[in-house]
Amino acid sequence: MNRDVTVQDVMDREYVGVSESDGLVETVELLLRNDVDAAVVQRGSEHIGVLTHEDVLALLVEGPDPAEAAVSDAMTESVPSVSPGVDIAVAADRMSTQESGRLVVTNGTEPLGIVSERDLLATHTMDTATENTEEAQVLVGRESDTEPETADDTNGGFQDQSICEGCGTFASDLTVFNGQLLCSDCRAI
């Protein structure tokens, strides 16, 4: 993971906040309308838990009638929190050790947003794609702004060729496309 990225850089600042006394069905409708998978449960400005899709499903199997249930009947009460300036590697470790799929980002007790496993994975995936792009440019012998170098006859004409990550052929017209080093045939697919 990129050690220069902090939680503040990847957190979702738009979160759904609900009260523990809110109706469960209404809260699920709110989650669906906002296309989010968790709500921060608050008492005043303090976060006291989180309500996730998994919590709602568990209540459907084990708990009271959802039409009569409140958020407090289904929520997870112990949700780890993290400061916005924390490195994402530290946040990932905290998620892993606390067995939580998300952390509430707080400045003291007030929630500022949520960072999820997806946020961290997306950051890691972007880092990997950037590293692969840089490696591919070195393999092909070109910089991102320049044309490919011409073949050197002393090397048998293979200086600017490499293997396409799509089809595995040896080609000189490779270009990074969607994070992969691809030949013109594979880019056309």
Rank of each mutant, 00 (worst) to 15 (best):
T125F: 11
D4C: 00
E117T: 15
L32G: 13
N178M: 06
G156A: 07
L60V: 11
T27D: 06
E68I: 00
Q8T: 08
T128E: 14
R43S: 13
L59Y: 01
M75E: 12
E135H: 07
G156M: 04
S81A: 14
F170V: 03
V41Y: 12
D119I: 02
R94V: 14
S100I: 04
T133D: 00
M126K: 11
Q42Y: 06
L121C: 05
G179V: 14
H47I: 06
G44E: 10
D152V: 06
R3E: 14
V86K: 05
E62N: 12
V176C: 05
D55G: 05
S21Y: 11
S78H: 11
S162R: 02
D173Y: 02
Q180C: 03
Q98A: 15
D87R: 13
A122K: 13
E68F: 01
T130M: 11
E143S: 11
E147G: 04
G166Y: 07
L181P: 01
G156C: 07
G49L: 08
G49A: 05
D173G: 09
G108W: 12
I88L: 11
C164I: 09
V90T: 12
D65E: 12
L174D: 10
G141W: 03
T125G: 05
V79R: 09
T169Q: 15
E62G: 02
E26K: 14
D173S: 09
D35I: 05
V10Q: 06
D185H: 14
D73K: 04
P148F: 01
R33E: 14
T109V: 10
D160V: 00
S96F: 02
T175Y: 13
D185N: 15
Y15A: 11
N132R: 07
Q137R: 09
N178P: 01
M126D: 08
V86W: 01
D153H: 11
T150I: 03
L51F: 08
T109Q: 14
L32E: 15
G44N: 07
L32W: 15
Q137P: 00
E165L: 04
T146F: 09
V25H: 01
D160T: 00
G156P: 11
N2A: 07
G168F: 07
P66K: 04
Q8H: 12
T97Q: 14
E62K: 11
M11G: 09
D37P: 00
D87L: 04
Y15N: 02
I114D: 01
E117I: 15
A74D: 05
E62D: 14
V140R: 07
Q180G: 04
V41I: 09
